[in-house]
């Protein structure tokens, strides 16, 4: 589904990603872990097409297409979804209105008829249960005055509505208490299928107790320095990131 080859990216001339290689198949969950500043969020942003980042080398093939060649909205319409670490507030625009606009633009791109208000509302009702989100929240301005937990829940709700092929969760666990974390993880797990894939970007292994990854990759100084299964996350939790840093330093010598 997604093949990343030797991806280099920089922001304002400072290189952040220095050669990422990654292969993701449908049905898989990949966790990207690493210390602060290792490039985790940059990777998520580059995949989603944020303009500030300049890709200097490498390629990303998504469903046989050159992902980097697509505009951010076309990536979304092709099924790439980014759950933001800091969801943006849009005053005066209700979540419902926002999402209906999004869904219908995606449908238009795919040559489907737009959903009328009734059909859209029934789709919302169905997905609301998944993340235990209150309808009242959805009639309020998008993310405005939402608590941290509500914002993250709303991201997963949007993911449920848009039904993406590739979801990237950027530090979705940050700022969540354990109950909210369980709700969010439960939503992600229910959306999982053999056709879609998920990238979970996180600093802590806590989230991975609830969203169990097939692969864990450790990002350090813009490269994936170690890959393994779920046990790698536990090992990191146990030993901290210094252990990885030392190991990288040693191999370099």
């Amino acid at each position: 589904m997604l093949t990343i080859k030797n991806l280099h990216a920089s922001i304002e001339g400072t290189p952040i990603l220095r050669g990422i290689n990654l292969e993701i198949k449908p049905g898989e969950i990949h966790a990207i872990m690493g210390p602060n500043g290792s490039g985790k969020s940059t990777l998520a942003s580059v995949l989603a097409g944020r303009e500030e980042y300049e890709v200097t080398e490498g390629e990303v093939i998504y469903k046989g297409k050159d992902l980097l060649d697509l505009s951010p909205e076309d990536r979304a319409r092709e099924g790439v979804f980014l759950a933001f670490q800091y969801p943006v507030e849009i005053p005066g625009v209700s979540s419902t209105n926002f999402l209906r606009t999004a869904v219908n633009q995606v449908r238009e791109y795919r040559g489907q008829e737009p959903l009328d208000a009734v059909k859209f509302l029934s789709l919302m009702k169905e997905k609301m249960k998944l993340v235990e989100i209150d309808q009242k929240l959805l009639s309020r301005s998008l993310n405005e005055g939402f608590s941290g937990g509500e914002k993250k829940r709303n991201e997963i709700f949007q993911m449920a509505i848009l039904d993406p092929a590739l979801s990237i969760l950027d530090e979705t666990d940050s700022g969540l208490d354990i109950d909210a974390l369980k709700v969010v993880a439960n939503g992600v797990n229910q959306l999982r299928s053999s056709d879609n894939a998920t990238i979970v970007v996180t600093h802590y292994q806590r989230l991975l107790d609830y969203i169990v990854p097939d692969f864990v990759h450790v990002l350090f100084e813009g490269r994936i320095v170690k890959s393994g299964d779920k046990s790698l996350a536990l090992e990191l939790e146990d030993k901290g990131y210094d252990w990885i840093k030392d190991e990288v330093a040693n191999t370099a010598v």
Partner: peptide, 15 residues
């Protein structure tokens, strides 16, 4: 904000 526009783009909404 570019952030607001990017957020919309990421959900499939044209600029």
């Amino acid at each position: 904000g570019e952030d607001q526009i990017f957020y919309c783009n990421q959900r499939g909404i044209a600029t």
